[in-house]
Design a protein around this nucleic acid. Structure first.
Lengths: 111, 111
DNA sequence: TGCGGATATGTCAAAACCGACATAGACTCT
DNA sequence: AGAGTCTATGTCGGTTTTGACATATCCGCA
């Protein structure tokens, strides 16, 4: 990859690693990852809006701080199922979840 | 989020039992069930639009006919995760999934 | 009525997931 | 620097989910 392009991308919020990693995924895999990250971001936003800690959220939804951290990071050990159930327990409804799915992540906006 | 409770709701059509069960669910549980049913219906529609059998879909997404049947029925043993991954493998994207989530089911419209 | 293709239901071993715990890192105070 | 608070990471035993298989039920159609 061209050095100038790399520099430009970095400035725009990209890292070179992210891009090449991305390109290794099949379309379905990429959609799946992004879908999950959209829910992750939504969860973190919900929590921050309410000024809660991860431990408090964990309490509220019957989980643990470490798992909430993993949820917000889109960790591989977290299923879409868990993310959805957690969001619903925090008061979201189907339509809220649908909204989150539509939202693009900050890193992919530049595409 | 007990799977037994969900399972009791999977029967098609209106019966007195189903309705009273419905009223026993917490809001989160109901949202979860409906969200899942929305994806189930979406999957069946996708399949029927393409004129495929459950066995063919199973093949295409690396599963089995019986599991596809369960997916389309919103069976308690099927996770939202599996439904989403299956839809994506059939060519849907995040936005398509979001559309499905928003759609109300024919059975709940009468409420 | 009986056949054949499609869908539904039940079960199970293997894989994936989950809550919990320990611990490390990041950050802010004093 | 040390203590306190919050978030990130690694691991693990118990639970849930999954593909596969067997079998049953449904639905035309001859």
């Amino acid at each position: 990859m061209d050095a100038r392009k790399r520099k430009r991308l970095k400035k725009a919020g990209w890292t070179v690693g992210d891009v090449s990693d991305f390109l290794k995924l099949t379309p379905e895999e990429r959609e799946y990852v992004e879908l999950k990250l959209a829910l992750s971001r939504g969860l973190r936003l919900q929590r921050e809006e309410r000024g809660l800690t991860q431990a408090e959220v964990a309490d509220r939804v019957g989980s643990s701080q470490s798992r909430v951290a993993k949820m917000e990071l889109g960790d591989g050990s977290v299923s879409v199922d868990l993310l959805v159930r957690t969001l619903l327990k925090l008061g979201a409804n189907r339509s809220d979840v649908a909204d989150l799915l539509r939202r693009r992540g900050p890193k992919t906006r530049a595409l």
